[in-house]
């Protein structure tokens, strides 16, 4: 455990060189730290997303959560989420550019080990899966109940032009998936399809599916929180990162 840490909002260079906000937490006085980029969930860059970032720092990672709706600011995180929705949402290309900026920031710190993973929740889970398929140099990815990895043609548009499941052949790092069996998005059938695609293409992955849990069951401030499943799920996440981000 790393009980001493620094946590703050910083500015990083995101997609297209845009200056965006990011919440950054890291253990104090440690070197050789792996990094983790945190994709916040759809409601926005909220308090819980920052708690997740600090939790990762507590476990020895330099964690960085870029504010994906930052360009609509300045303003409150929930107003900026509403503004992003009013504008039609953020594009996949922009999100991946912001994630690349966050990865570069983490790798460039003097205390960095050079290894970097990603974790995402809800829409961020889909983005973590996409990062595993599109961002070179990623060492591990965790998809927590990412919705619309499996997408119908009518769900695709200019901002999200490609179904993420179709990117699976390009996945270049190990993947951990955490899902609730009561979730409607992704539902059990969709998770089965994703797993079949990963198997078909010989990817390294592990999925954990929890009974009695639905969407967002790690989020302690939401009614879907399921403590027993969440505690076990976090163990799986930390064990996975330990395996892929700390080993040489």
């Amino acid at each position: 455990m790393y009980e001493g840490m620094i946590a703050e909002t910083i500015t990083i260079s995101g997609h297209g060189g845009d200056a965006i906000e990011a919440y950054f937490a890291r253990p104090l006085g440690s070197v050789g730290l792996p990094g983790v980029v945190v994709f916040h969930h759809m409601p926005g860059w909220d308090e819980w997303s920052k708690e997740v970032t600090r939790k990762l720092a507590f476990h020895g990672y330099a964690a960085l959560c870029p504010h994906l709706f930052s360009r609509h600011g300045p303003g409150r995180w929930d107003d900026l989420a509403a503004a992003a929705r009013a504008a039609g949402g953020v594009s996949d290309a922009q999100v991946m550019g912001d994630a690349k900026g966050a990865m570069d920031y983490l790798r460039n710190q003097p205390y960095a080990s050079g290894r970097v993973g990603v974790i995402g929740f809800c829409s961020g889970g889909r983005q973590a899966y996409m990062a595993a398929c599109t961002l070179p140099g990623l060492d591990a990815a965790v998809d927590c109940w990412g919705g619309r990895v499996v997408a119908r043609p009518e769900e695709l548009n200019e901002r999200q032009p490609r179904a993420v499941i179709d990117m699976t052949p390009d996945m270049a790092c190990s993947l951990l998936g955490i899902f609730g069996n009561d979730d409607g998005n992704p539902d059990v059938e969709q998770v089965n399809r994703i797993e079949a695609e990963l198997t078909k293409h010989g990817k390294t992955y592990e999925f954990h599916r929890y009974d009695g849990a639905g969407h967002g069951f790690f989020a302690v401030d939401r009614p879907g929180y399921r403590p027993e499943q969440a505690v076990d799920g976090w163990k799986k996440v930390l064990s996975f990162f330990e395996r892929y981000l700390r080993t040489d």
């Binding site: 409601p43 926005g44 929930d78 989420a81 509403a82 929705r85 967002g216 401030d221 939401r222 009614p223």
Partner: peptide
């Protein structure tokens, strides 16, 4: 703007 999705504040899924 009207939508049915995850809320920012209300304790609802």
């Amino acid at each position: 703007n009207v939508y049915y999705d995850h809320p920012a504040s209300a304790p609802l899924d």
